[in-house]
Simulated assay, not measured.
Amino acid sequence: MQWIVLVVSGLLEAVWATALGRSEGLHRLTPTIVFFVALFLSMAGLAYAMRDLPTGSSYAVWVGIGATGAVAYGMATGAEAAGLAKILCVIAIVGGVIGLKLVS
């Protein structure tokens, strides 16, 4: 159960990071609300998962999922350039996250 919560929390990290970028310095209302709600839920989920999972692995997986999600969203929407090198780096992050899950 903690791993599921951790993955969802990582996805919410991508949501709040994206919303923060769209909020224009917390000046646009809707993205700012999405940012704060997703931030709270993401942190609460991380805290819950860390009750039973190792801190280092939990944090690395959470950040990895969030970073990968934010970059993937940016590439999918065209807000960020998608090149082979960038895609290979994202794949390396995903591989590291999967590796941490397998050894934990």
Results as ranks from 00 to 15, higher is better:
Q2P: 12
W3K: 04
W3E: 01
I4F: 14
I4N: 05
V5E: 06
V5N: 11
V5Q: 06
L6C: 07
L6N: 11
L6H: 07
V7M: 03
V8I: 13
V8K: 03
V8R: 06
L11A: 03
L11W: 01
L11I: 13
E13I: 01
E13R: 08
A14C: 02
A14I: 01
A14H: 07
V15W: 00
W16M: 05
W16D: 07
A17P: 07
A17N: 13
T18D: 04
G21A: 01
G21K: 01
R22N: 11
R22E: 11
G25P: 10
G25W: 14
G25N: 14
L26C: 01
L26D: 00
H27V: 10
R28S: 06
L29H: 09
L29R: 04
T30C: 08
T30D: 00
T30I: 09
T30K: 12
P31I: 11
I33P: 08
V34P: 06
V34S: 05
V34Y: 03
V34C: 02
F36V: 13
V37Y: 00
V37F: 06
V37G: 00
A38M: 08
A38P: 07
A38V: 14
A38N: 06
L39F: 00
F40C: 13
F40V: 00
F40Q: 11
F40L: 15
L41Q: 01
L41C: 04
L41R: 01
S42K: 09
S42M: 01
M43C: 12
G45L: 09
L46M: 02
A47E: 05
Y48N: 00
R51V: 04
R51Q: 13
D52Y: 09
D52R: 09
D52L: 13
L53H: 06
L53D: 09
L53K: 08
T55P: 01
T55Y: 12
G56Q: 11
G56F: 04
G56N: 08
S57K: 14
S57A: 15
S57D: 13
S58Y: 08
Y59T: 11
A60C: 14
A60L: 13
A60S: 15
V61R: 04
V61D: 04
V61E: 02
W62F: 14
V63M: 12
G66N: 03
T68G: 15
T68W: 02
T68Y: 01
G69N: 08
A72T: 14
A72N: 07
Y73F: 12
M75R: 09
A76D: 06
A79D: 15
A79E: 14
E80G: 09
E80S: 06
E80H: 05
A81P: 14
A82C: 15
A82K: 10
A82S: 13
G83T: 02
A85T: 06
A85C: 04
K86F: 01
I87T: 10
I87V: 13
L88P: 02
C89W: 12
C89H: 05
V90S: 04
V90Q: 02
I91A: 08
I91D: 00
A92D: 08
I93G: 03
I93Y: 07
V94R: 02
G95C: 03
I98P: 06
I98N: 05
K101A: 14
L102A: 13
L102T: 13
L102R: 12
L102Y: 14
V103C: 08
V103R: 05
S104V: 05
